[in-house]
Design a protein around this nucleic acid. Structure first.
Length: 570
DNA sequence: GCAGCGTTAATAT
DNA sequence: TTAACGCTGC
């Protein structure tokens, strides 16, 4: 990830800082880096999509850091990655394969009973899923933390925010682990920030055009700097064999013109330079400067910097490598966290989170820590559901064997495995180790489905898939406009299933819910599956058309605060 | 001196 | 997953 060896090379420009230097300011956060770090503490649970408190540690990790920033009077702006662009497909694919291999190995170790080796391998296998990001988004909403989902790269979105003035939603610095941000010309990036707020900062203008320091970036403009980064090797384009950061720097410093550098490279390295390297290089450069980002003011996608005439004329006018343009309604739905940017499926509005988000932050005795509150309603196994769908209400009230659920509880720490992500032998291996499957725990206890499914083609290249999905989404929308059932389900509603649930409204607990099984049930047993899909889409796009965002969000976050599900039965 | 490879440690609690 | 380190070969 990032630019090969860039941080090491920039060491002379790194300064130790405490994040409180940005008190009173808005600071952007690359969500992926914290999600990933947080996931280490629960890698097995995440990989196997288990249920239970431990799986949600990554949320606690994230929110702890948010609390720390707020404690420092910083306004955090969390930026999530969206879909990946075609340029990056190869890198992503390689990572995916590695993770899968590690996961398979981990399963084998687990079967052998070697849990230590297994957990180490699971740590290498963790990937951050859109569902995890969405879980976090739900909490951020309820805690009124500002966030945006980038249409493509979070880095580009962060760079865009950093280019805006504060009054227009801009940020003054970025917290991340990704050196790409420097290639995107972000002015101030804090790397390796620990939980107390200490980190290492690079301020770009302290390096560019400053005399007397080595390596000297005297007479480097931002384009040359980005060019150097690409030459050294980045996610979009591997470096020419034999070229690392030092040689890249020397070439750029010597010729101060990227076209010249490319021709010298061809002369010096000859056949080692791939045929299409110069073209790929220019595309990568264009991505770093003109990637498509979401503009909250116009609620549309726009290029990070205005497109140049050369770009508009070149590439036969096909600028999809910057990330294909999206219609405004889709762009908004993605940015606001209602549409999965990878699959273009509507996110399930059903609660997924087991995170207990009553975090407070103290630094007395210079020790910063979280406090989790357990409430009575949880211990008593209270059951409250938030839903956008009225049939859910009926099912919960009519069919849910609540008493059975309460009596089946076997202590808080029980971990439940999901058969949908495991094959048969894996499932039986885990059962031998004492895990229970979700199907066993949730059989006949699940409410009706809410998830929308839009028949996503699975093997298509990303670009085509996005377009197809967008068409389907728009079609689904227009069909739904006329469906009479829709009017019934527009308003988010809160339903309670026990007399205790009224009390739980004050509770700040969110307990996990079996999602995958919900989907499975929906396909098997709900003849109205297609309708409910459309409802999902409608309810999302409805945000834009008929309600002010503000009032919806208030309602939504309120709803989320009272989600408290299943109590001890997990 | 540098690139590039392999190994190892750290990430979180 | 990444950074850091040491080794090797150009």
């Amino acid at each position: 990830m990032g630019i090969n060896n860039l941080l090491k090379f920039m060491k002379p420009y790194v300064e130790s800082v405490h994040i409180k230097k940005y008190a009173g300011k808005r600071v952007g956060i690359d969500a992926y880096s914290w999600l990933h770090k947080g996931a280490y503490s629960c890698s097995m649970e995440v990989c196997l999509d288990m249920e239970g408190d431990k799986k949600n540690r990554f949320l606690q990790y994230f929110m702890h850091r948010i609390s720390m920033l707020r404690h420092c009077k910083i306004t955090p702006v969390v930026v999530f990655d969206g879909g990946s662009t075609t340029c990056k497909a190869a890198t992503e694919d390689g990572r995916h394969r590695k993770r899968k291999a590690n996961r398979d190995l981990a399963m084998e170790k687990l079967k052998e009973g070697d849990t230590d080796a297994a957990s180490e391998l699971f740590q290498r296998a963790v990937s951050i899923t859109p569902q995890m990001a969405h879980q976090l988004i739900q909490i951020l909403r309820s805690e009124n933390v500002e966030f945006v989902v980038a249409p493509y790269e979070a880095d580009a979105q962060l760079a865009y925010l950093a280019s805006l003035e504060t009054e227009k939603g801009g940020i003054v610095a970025i917290i991340s682990e990704d050196s790409d941000l420097l290639a995107y010309n972000c002015p101030a990036v804090v790397f390796k920030m620990d939980r107390y707020g200490k980190g290492e900062e690079i301020i770009l203008k302290n390096a560019l055009n400053v005399a007397g320091r080595k390596p000297s970036f005297m007479n480097f403009d931002r384009e040359l700097f980005t060019g150097m980064c690409i030459l050294a090797g980045c996610d979009f384009l591997p470096s020419v064999p034999g070229i690392g950061i030092v040689k890249a720097y020397n070439l750029v410093a010597k010729y101060r013109n990227l076209d010249r550098v490319l021709s010298v490279l061809k002369l010096e390295k000859g056949k080692v330079v791939p045929e299409d390297y110069p073209n790929a290089f220019r595309q990568a450069l264009a991505v770093f400067h003109h990637a498509r980002v979401y503009d909250a003011a116009s609620k549309k996608l726009k290029p990070l910097n205005p497109l140049t005439p050369e770009l508009l004329q070149g590439e036969n006018g096909d600028l999809d490598f910057l990330g294909p343009d999206l219609s405004p309604s889709i762009a908004v739905a993605i940015a606001e966290g209602n549409l999965d940017p990878c699959t273009m499926e509507a996110f399930n509005h059903f609660p997924q989170s087991g995170y207990k988000h009553s975090l407070s932050f103290t630094d007395s005795a210079s020790q910063l820590s979280t406090q989790e509150e357990a409430t009575g309603s949880m211990q008593e196994g209270c059951f409250t559901v938030v839903s956008c769908h009225k049939t859910v209400k009926k099912r919960i009230r009519g069919d849910m064997p609540l008493d059975g659920m309460k009596s089946s509880s076997e202590g808080k720490q029980m971990t439940v495995i999901s058969e949908e992500v495991l094959n048969e032998s894996e499932t039986s291996a885990l059962k031998k180790l004492g895990f229970r499957s979700r199907n066993e725990v949730f059989a006949q206890k699940e409410p009706a489905p809410l998830r929308s499914t839009l028949n996503i083609p699975s093997n298509n290249p990303f670009k085509k898939q996005k377009r197809d999905n967008e068409v389907q989404l728009n079609e689904a929308m227009s069909t739904v406009e006329q469906a009479s059932e829709v009017t019934e389900v527009e308003k988010p509603e809160i339903f309670s299933a026990t007399q205790k649930s009224e009390e739980s409204i004050d509770s700040k607990l969110i307990k996990p819910k079996g999602k995958r099984i919900t989907e499975k049930l929906s396909k098997q047993s709900n003849p109205k599956h297609v309708i409910s899909s459309k409802v999902g889409v409608r309810s999302i796009l409805n945000l834009k058309s008929s309600k002010s965002l503000d009032s919806y969000q208030k309602g939504y976050s309120y709803s989320l605060k009272i989600i408290s599900i299943l109590g001890n039965s997990l």
